[in-house]
Design a protein around this nucleic acid. Structure first.
Length: 103
DNA sequence: GTCCTGACATATG
DNA sequence: GCATATGCCAGGA
């Protein structure tokens, strides 16, 4: 049984560009359905030069949970990925949600 | 050890 | 859609 952290990373690197997913889904796919919060903590601990697409993870409401500069960075990256993000940080989950299946 | 906080989710009214 | 409550788990004080 791999470590929780490693499992989360493994799921993150599978998220195709142009798609987003939620904390709960990442946790579930990683094999820890009740660890949504853990995902957030983990992402917050990621180094700034991390290769992991942490910016493709948002909350179940389809909104970016971050604030200030972090929020700006995530929004910019998503836009660059082709994801439509409103000024408020809202994303059209209906169109950009990742099912958990590879692209 | 307890208490509080937190990039969360789901259920209920 | 919003407010409240409950569940879950790791860290820090």
């Amino acid at each position: 049984m791999p470590n929780f952290d490693d499992q989360i990373y493994a799921v993150l690197i599978q998220i195709p560009s142009g798609k987003v997913t939620t904390y709960g889904d990442v946790a579930k796919l990683a094999g820890f359905p009740r660890h949504a919060r853990h995902v957030g903590k983990l992402l917050g601990s990621l180094p700034k030069d991390s290769k992991l697409p942490w910016f493709r993870v948002i909350n179940s409401s389809g909104m970016i949970s971050l604030k200030g500069e972090s929020f700006i960075r995530q929004r910019e990256k998503l836009l660059d990925d082709g994801v439509e993000v409103k000024e408020s940080g809202a994303v059209s989950l209906r169109r950009f949600r990742w099912d958990g299946e590879p692209a």
